[in-house]
Simulated scan of single mutants.
Amino acid sequence: MIALSKNGTTVFPNHAVHREKEKELHQLRLRLKAVRVQCLLLEFFYPERYTSKSLFTPFREYYQQTSRLRDLTVALHRFRKICRKHRLPSNGFQNYLRHHYREEEKRLQRLPAHDIDTFEQQHRNEIPPEELTDIVTQQLQQLIEKVLTAHMDSEKSGNLHWQRKQLKKLIYLNQLLPEKRSVWDESITGKLETLDEKLGAWHDLQVLLQFIGRFAGQHSRGHTPVWLPRIARAVITEQVRILESLKELTK
């Protein structure tokens, strides 16, 4: 049941419990991402035995559902911050996001959860540790070439979400290497992580815009809440600010 705060706005009944759920979701997604990387490495090392797609299949639907929950969680956080910063009313949109969060949470609970521990134990020693560094290095080099080639493709080079996904792979793979075998020095790593953070913030706002669009679509023409365009403009303003900061970072 939704509780009411002193100012009359709806809130989750137990903030502490909800924050704990967010942490658990984050940790779960980190583990699933690690599984996905392991699937890629196994395919690279044993191309005749494995494909990363088939290895990750038991986890895919569950992972996608956690992504939907993550998007809603981030949309709520971003929305609150923007409303505070621009002094905008939240009205029914915040409740709309919370309702969808609960619905997606129920869907996640109904999905079968494949055992990550079993997968990790099953494949733990398949790649010889002494060869792992070389494999990761080769994967990194291939990924770097893929990103460089993509800059010739206007569709991919202009797709910030695609760029961010490749960037996250680069950062994660580089973290698997011993410090002495890192493909780039520490200053580059810091710059890439900052770039990833900014692209992530831009993407989160893009997700929020999509939710705003769906919410607006529930209203007939001429009956869209008057405050909704103001919120959309505020979100776009924040996105522009991030893109401007990206220009400085990538000089």
Rank of each mutant, 00 (worst) to 15 (best):
Lys33Cys: 02
Arg164Asp: 06
Lys146Leu: 12
Val74Arg: 08
Glu43Ser: 04
Arg68Gly: 10
Leu88Glu: 03
Leu199Arg: 00
Val226Ala: 15
Phe119Ile: 03
Lys53Cys: 07
Leu108Asp: 02
Thr51Ser: 06
Leu4Cys: 10
Lys53Gly: 08
Asp153Met: 09
Ser220Ala: 15
Phe12Val: 14
Ser90Pro: 08
Leu208Arg: 05
Glu145Pro: 11
Thr133Leu: 07
Phe93Pro: 02
Gln206Asp: 14
Ser54Gln: 15
Asn7Ile: 10
Leu209Val: 07
Glu238Ala: 00
Ile135Phe: 02
Thr137Gln: 12
Glu238Phe: 02
Val35Ile: 12
Arg36Ile: 03
Glu248Phe: 03
Arg110Thr: 15
Arg181Pro: 03
Ile116Trp: 03
Phe56His: 01
Leu228Arg: 02
Ser67Arg: 15
Leu167Thr: 00
His99Val: 07
Ala16Tyr: 13
Gly217Tyr: 06
Lys251Cys: 09
Asp117Asn: 15
Ser52Phe: 04
Ile188Pro: 00
Arg78Met: 08
Thr194Ile: 09
Ile127Glu: 00
Lys168Pro: 04
Leu243Phe: 03
Glu244Trp: 08
Glu43Met: 06
Thr194Ser: 07
Arg31Leu: 08
His100Met: 06
Leu249Gln: 06
Gly92Val: 03
Phe12Trp: 13
Asn7Asp: 14
Ile231Asp: 00
Trp202Met: 05
His86Gln: 15
Arg241Pro: 00
Gly8Trp: 04
Ile212Ala: 15
Lys165Leu: 13
Lys198Pro: 04
Ala150Val: 04
Thr66Gly: 00
Thr224Ala: 09
Phe79Ala: 05
Ser245Met: 03
Ile82Ala: 02
Thr73Gly: 07
Lys146Cys: 11
Ala216Lys: 10
Leu30Asp: 10
Leu32Ser: 06
Leu167Pro: 01
His86Asn: 11
Gln206Leu: 10
Gln27Ala: 13
Leu72Val: 00
Glu22Val: 13
Leu246Glu: 01
Leu140Arg: 00
Glu120Ser: 11
Leu167Ile: 03
Gln141Arg: 15
Ile135Glu: 01
Arg230Tyr: 08
His15Tyr: 13
Tyr172Gln: 07
His219Phe: 15
